[in-house]
């Protein structure tokens, strides 16, 4: 098992390195330097600024220096927020994003999982059609449409919930979490339904019934574990999607999180910030993918013993 984790970690290293390299050079070859837009920058000041950010050095030297900084966990200074480092900015945005992501994931797994399992128990009846139609709506209704619509209905018309903010007013975390989690709840519902249907048609379920187990035990003891495996495998990609979704949700609800910083940095051409955030988020996604792979392997006895022997 540990060997498996170690080998997957080793495989992650080149991926992360590739991300860093590609991002770095992409950003550097971008037309227009970071200080070009400000019209009235005196040449000396510009030179001084470029020296400060090492922009006067050859590209490859910059790259090596950047890698060196990274190795020490240093993401460099921000171009647009003078005096603040990218590390500080990320640290400032991370808590809100992490919390939002966690709630959204909970929404996705709890609502989606329950809906999917319930639908799978009586396929092709109302008990199946209703949650699955809702899931279809969840998949087809993009986050950036659902968010404004929810705000329109619950925030503006009914005035039940605040329309924006994060942790300022009671209940202001509900709409963003729901908005972000809805699409993933829909995916989880479809995956868990398909997974459960697959498992419920297996011979070993018939064996369990032939033993005289009550139906709820057949479901919980024999079917759930196999049926929810696709959901576990989906967690990695879902995490990446949640991060991207948080760009939109944080923008709509004006949440001071990483996603909003990232989008702002993209508009401001704050290259060190883009670079730093990309590296940080990518590493996070790669690690989360790894974690979901390991979890899936660990839940499957066949794979587990394989790694044990290997």
């Amino acid at each position: 098992m540990w060997k498996f984790v170690a080998s997957r970690l080793l495989q992650a290293v080149p991926v992360i390195l590739a991300v860093i390299t590609v991002t770095f050079f992409l950003v550097r070859v971008a037309p227009g330097g970071p200080f070009d837009s400000e019209k009235a920058v005196i040449p000396e000041v510009k030179a001084a600024l470029e020296a400060q950010y090492r922009l006067d050095q050859p590209l490859f030297q910059q790259y090596v220096a950047y890698l060196g900084d990274l190795a020490q966990g240093e993401l460099g200074p921000s171009f647009k927020y003078p005096g603040r480092s990218v590390n500080e900015l990320i640290a400032a945005g991370l808590p809100a994003t992490a919390e939002l992501g966690l709630y959204a994931l909970l929404v996705a797994i709890c609502i989606g999982g329950v809906a999917g399992v319930i639908a799978s128990l009586k396929p092709n009846t109302a008990q199946d059609y209703i949650p699955m139609s809702l899931a279809m709506i969840g998949i087809c209704m993009p986050t950036f449409l659902l968010g404004p619509l929810l705000v329109l209905v619950f925030g503006i018309h009914l005035e039940w919930l605040p329309v924006s903010g994060w942790g300022d007013m009671p209940g202001d975390k509900l709409l963003p979490s729901l908005t972000l989690g809805a699409a993933y709840a829909a995916y989880v519902a479809r995956l868990s339904r398909a997974g459960m249907l697959e498992v419920l048609s297996q011979d070993y379920i018939r064996t369990a019934r032939a033993k005289g187990l009550p139906e709820w035990q057949v479901i919980t003891r024999h079917a759930l574990r196999g049926g929810l495996m696709p959901v576990v495998a989906f967690l990695g990609p879902a995490f990446a999607g949640l991060l991207a979704g948080s760009f939109v949700v944080e923008t709509i609800f004006q949440i001071p999180g990483l996603g909003r910083f990232y989008v702002q940095a993209a508009f401001n051409r704050d290259y060190t910030m883009i670079l730093g955030t990309t590296v940080f988020l990518s590493t996070l996604i790669v690690l989360f993918n790894l974690a979901s792979d390991v979890l899936a392997a660990w839940l499957n006895p066949r794979l587990r013993s394989q790694f044990g022997e290997a």
Binding site: A18, T23, L243, T278, L281, I285
Partner: peptide, 20 residues
């Protein structure tokens, strides 16, 4: 597999920023 592990959404955002 390696490309799969890359966070593409972020990359597309980056591409759009960089190349207009």
């Amino acid at each position: 597999d390696i490309l799969y592990a890359l966070p593409f959404m972020i990359f597309i955002v980056l591409l759009m920023v960089v190349f207009g």
